[in-house]
Computed example of a mutant assay.
Amino acid sequence: MRIRISAGHTAGHAEYVITGGGQRLIAFGDALHSPVQVDHPELSAAVDHDPARAAAHRARLVAELSEPDTIGFGIHFADVVFGRVRRDGGAPAWQPLSPTGDH
């Protein structure tokens, strides 16, 4: 497990990256507040103390979440907190994992 700072959000905000079994999970906390921000990382939340840095961080995070064998955990994503970022020929989009674990 690694802990890393999320630039631009509230002071001291961190993400957790857990790897094992050929996969990784990124628990990104408040870096993304809505699945809409996956497609539009430039959209800031009111609590971003540096909106430009936060948007740049979100863009990098979305790119990382779209890498193979990567699962995201977004605490603010209501009932779709676990998912993957897919780029099926267009803009990135949040694809929730099914309750059965199917991708």
Rank of each mutant, 00 (worst) to 15 (best):
R2D: 15
I5S: 08
I5Q: 09
S6R: 10
A7G: 09
A7R: 15
G8S: 03
H9P: 01
T10F: 13
A11V: 13
A11D: 15
G12K: 05
G12E: 07
H13W: 12
H13I: 11
A14N: 12
E15I: 03
E15P: 03
E15H: 09
V17T: 13
V17F: 01
I18V: 15
I18C: 10
T19V: 11
T19P: 07
G20C: 06
G20Q: 05
G21P: 09
G21S: 06
Q23H: 14
Q23Y: 12
R24P: 05
L25P: 07
I26V: 14
F28S: 02
G29T: 04
G29Y: 01
L32V: 02
H33C: 11
H33R: 12
H33E: 10
S34W: 02
P35A: 06
V36K: 14
V38W: 00
D39T: 14
D39I: 09
D39G: 15
D39P: 07
H40M: 08
H40E: 12
P41A: 08
P41L: 06
P41Q: 08
L43R: 12
L43Y: 09
S44K: 07
S44T: 13
A45H: 15
V47G: 08
D48P: 01
H49C: 13
D50L: 04
D50G: 02
P51E: 06
P51D: 05
A55V: 04
A55W: 02
A55E: 02
A56Q: 11
A56V: 05
H57N: 09
R58D: 00
A59G: 05
A63I: 06
E64W: 00
E64G: 08
E64F: 00
L65Q: 01
L65Y: 01
S66G: 15
S66D: 14
E67N: 11
E67G: 14
P68L: 06
P68M: 06
P68K: 04
T70I: 02
I71A: 09
G72I: 00
G74R: 00
G74D: 02
H76S: 10
H76D: 10
F77H: 03
F77K: 01
F77T: 05
A78G: 09
A78P: 08
D79M: 10
D79I: 09
D79L: 11
D79V: 11
V80Q: 13
V80G: 13
V81D: 10
F82G: 05
G83S: 07
R84Y: 04
R84N: 08
R84A: 11
V85S: 02
V85M: 02
V85P: 00
R87C: 15
D88C: 14
G89C: 07
A91Q: 11
A91G: 12
A93F: 03
A93S: 14
P96I: 07
L97V: 14
L97D: 04
L97A: 04
P99F: 06
T100D: 15
T100W: 13
T100S: 15
T100K: 10
G101Y: 03
D102Y: 09
